[in-house]
Each structure stands twice: as C-alpha cells, then as structure tokens.
C-alpha cells in the first residue's frame, strides 16, 4: 500500500509523512518513507512517499499509489501522477479549478476526489498550519482502502511526535477533521 503527499515547503508535508509512518508502525505494519530536505523546502513543491508492507525502497512508481494527500490545489497534478486507477485523492481546497488534462485524467481513471478547506478550518482552531492534520482526520471518514492507520493510532502517533506545546492541539485537529467528516457523512 502506497501513500503520496504533496504540498509546498512549510505546509507540514514532512510531519504528515512521519505521523502516518509512525502510526502504521504502531499497528505492527512495516512502513518506509522518504521526505524532502534542503533548498527544496524553501516554499517549493515537495513530495513525500510512504510505503506500507513488504518494501525496501521508499520511492513510489507513478500510477501505483492507492491514496494521496494534497495540501495545496496547485500540487494536485503532482500527486495524481502517482495514483493508480480507482484510488483516492484528498485535497485541502474549497473549490477546485483543475486544468482540463487533470480533470480528464481523474475522471478517466476513476480517481475519487475529496476536497475540504482544511487550512481554513484549522485557522478557526487557532493553528493556520494545521490543515494537514485536519485533512488527515477528515480523510479517514471517506477512505475506503486499507493503507491508512486508524484514528486511535494516528492520535497516539501525534502524541509521540508533536512538541509538547502543540501536542493537544495536534490531536484535536485530527479529531476535529474526523468529526467534521463523520457529520457530513451523516448529512449525506
């Protein structure tokens, strides 16, 4: 099972990667991942990979991932290129205005897309940089595959990885995303 995360430097791509990797390990799964450091972090497009299962290399081949998180609309094509047909894309955005080729590709490959303005929701909680965690919690309520760890494991991992100052807030962000998703599911 393979997960892709795209965004730009400073959005929390690396933290989200570590969170999912750690939570998967807490569930006893073998997880490998890779992240971007150095100059590429200075506000540029970045991508992280997580592979859960019997893998040695953290790199993902295009068209083979089952799930992607995209923390910025402009990074959607970058994430989609790694997705397999029938997979799921979770996007932090209110509206989506994709280029024609991307819309066509997503439709043709039956990639299901869920978008929510996660950063705006996180801002309301007082953390403008918490969109990544809200999106993750939200995604759990729509995700139909087997790659993502459970809410409990993710919260436990957030407890371990967050600096003390942000620990409660981070767990709260994941839970709020989850609750929002559950509520909207109920309304549907």
């Amino acid at each position: 099972m393979k997960i892709v995360i795209t965004g730009t430097g400073g959005q929390g791509v690396v933290f989200l990667t570590r969170l999912i990797t750690t939570a998967s390990s807490l569930e006893g799964k073998h997880a490998v991942s890779t992240e971007t450091h150095g100059m590429a972090q200075r506000g540029a497009s970045i991508i992280s990979f997580i592979k859960i299962g019997n893998y040695l290399s953290p790199l993902i081949r295009r068209t083979t991932a089952s799930c992607a998180f995209c923390l910025k609309e402009s990074e959607s094509a970058h994430a989609t290129a790694y997705l397999m047909p029938g997979s799921q894309l979770f996007l932090d955005s209110e509206k989506t205005s994709f280029k024609e080729d991307l819309t066509t590709y997503i439709t043709k490959n039956k990639i299901s897309m869920t978008s929510i303005s996660a950063t705006d929701k996180a801002k309301e909680l007082g953390n403008p940089r918490g969109g990544n965690l809200f999106l993750l919690g939200f995604a759990l309520t729509r995700y139909t595959g087997h790659a993502l760890p459970s809410l409990d494991s993710l919260c436990a991992a957030a407890n371990t990885l967050s600096p003390a100052k942000f620990r409660d807030l981070n767990v709260q962000l994941i839970k709020l995303g989850y609750e929002t998703g559950s509520r909207l599911n109920g309304e549907r």
């Binding site: 200075r42 506000g43 068209t63 094509a77 280029k99 590709y105």
Partner: peptide, 17 residues
Amino acid sequence: QQQLPELSIDFVRPTLC
C-alpha cells in the same frame, strides 16, 4: 509496458522566505 500519465505538472520553485 508502463503507461505513465501525460499530465502537465507545474512545480513551484523555491524562494527566499
């Protein structure tokens, strides 16, 4: 044979903070 997607991907370049 691999069927790789022909998507145009715009990359944001790094900038000074």
